[in-house]
Design a protein around this nucleic acid. Structure first.
Lengths: 213, 213
DNA sequence: TTTACTTTCAAACAAGTGTTTGATACAGTT
DNA sequence: AACTGTATCAAACACTTGTTTGAAAGTAAA
């Protein structure tokens, strides 16, 4: 890396402000619900800035996507010196923190969650760059735990079972808030959730290995 | 019920056509994405008909919601003469059929799924009339399986784990289609999914009972 | 048929959308 | 200082949105 990364022209600064604002707004509203004007207001830029710098609202969304946090998490886990079961536990804790922590929850994850319900052209990018590698990562990790006797389709369903549990807490947050108004996603609660998902899933996986083995 | 339910005035017929069209359109687009004009086109009614009969677009959505299928499913399960574990298996199969079957998949479920990602005032109604009873139902069923030694919070997380797995296949359908283009939710596939979720979850629950007991 | 009421309809309305425009201000180079 | 390409801006554009309007058509009782 060069030292010059810190020096930005005025143009680059507005670009960066727009991207930050876009991530914020797109994570709170659906793509349709988010307005260019609100993004520009938040970025303190002119309405025309989006089209000037990114061509269109869609182009802005495409550039606002950034999965570095997610890939870093996987890389760290792969190189960790621990047995597969513990690595699953570590991964789920980190993943749920990224998904739920109100402090530094990844706006990327929120945007991804929205794309599922109401896909835009950006979903193709999200799937190929983020979700596909993520599923492959967890699939390999589970394979280490479960051995070679379990079929590919059944293993995949275990991956789905785990991500399904994880995503539930993000997707259904509006519902859970109404069911249990006291619920807060603080660090302690997130840890407890991750622990539950890990224990629950490890049992489910073992049962599968036993049945097939 | 009177026999007259079959005889409908012209006004009642347009009302019914609008409700049908609304369920269709709201299940395919988000509330914001769905347009009154498209609904009216599908219902072969004038644009003003929505506001005349239902007051507003929101009013139409509120009246279009109908959870009878969901409550019937629960009632049938409660009165079934079978042990809790088998009733869980039966419930999950029926529930997944309702959720996924492309033939007669409940548009209601699709609408509910959309509401999670982008809540409208209708979500309050959905939560209190459909989701809360559903969670309570599954909670009681799990309690029968797990006994009284497991805490309330942990049991609730099991409910979440199960619904999380179920909803995953509906929520992430756009993603799964891209990951595995061959995937089709036919009757056989849905049965296999329901079986997997049941086995996976029963193992998770048992592990919890063992730990706490 | 006349009367009173309900329902439909084309048209318009006000507000909001993403995008474009042409002028203006600003940089860096010669 | 003059020139040049870049970036910003207020304003307008073309279009869609949910909703309203006032007249026309339909319906049913008197």
């Amino acid at each position: 890396m060069m030292a010059e990364v810190e020096i930005k022209t005025a143009s680059e600064q507005t670009r960066a402000r727009l991207l930050d604002a876009a991530r914020e707004v797109f994570s709170q509203h659906s793509f349709q619900g988010a307005t260019v004007r609100e993004i520009c207001r938040l970025a303190e830029a002119n309405v025309a800035a989006v089209n000037y710098h990114f061509g269109s609202k869609e182009g802005l969304l495409a550039e606002a996507l950034n999965f570095s946090q997610l890939t870093a998490l996987q890389k760290a886990n792969v190189t960790a010196d621990a047995c597969p079961k513990i690595r699953l536990r570590l991964f789920l804790r980190d993943f749920m923190l990224m998904l739920l922590d109100e402090k530094h929850a990844s706006s990327q994850c929120r945007i991804m969650a929205r794309e599922l319900a109401d896909p835009t052209p950006a979903l193709d990018q999200i799937v190929s760059e983020a979700i596909a590698p993520l599923h492959e990562f967890l699939g390999k990790l589970l394979r280490e735990i479960v051995g070679n006797k379990v079929g590919e389709a059944e293993l995949r369903r275990c991956v789905y079972s785990i991500f399904g549990q994880c995503q539930f807490y993000r997707h259904s947050h509006p519902v859970l808030q109404r069911l249990h108004p006291k619920l807060r996603y603080d660090h302690k609660e997130i840890d407890a959730i991750a622990e539950h998902i890990t224990d629950f899933s490890l049992a489910g996986i073992k049962q599968l290995a036993k049945k097939s083995g």
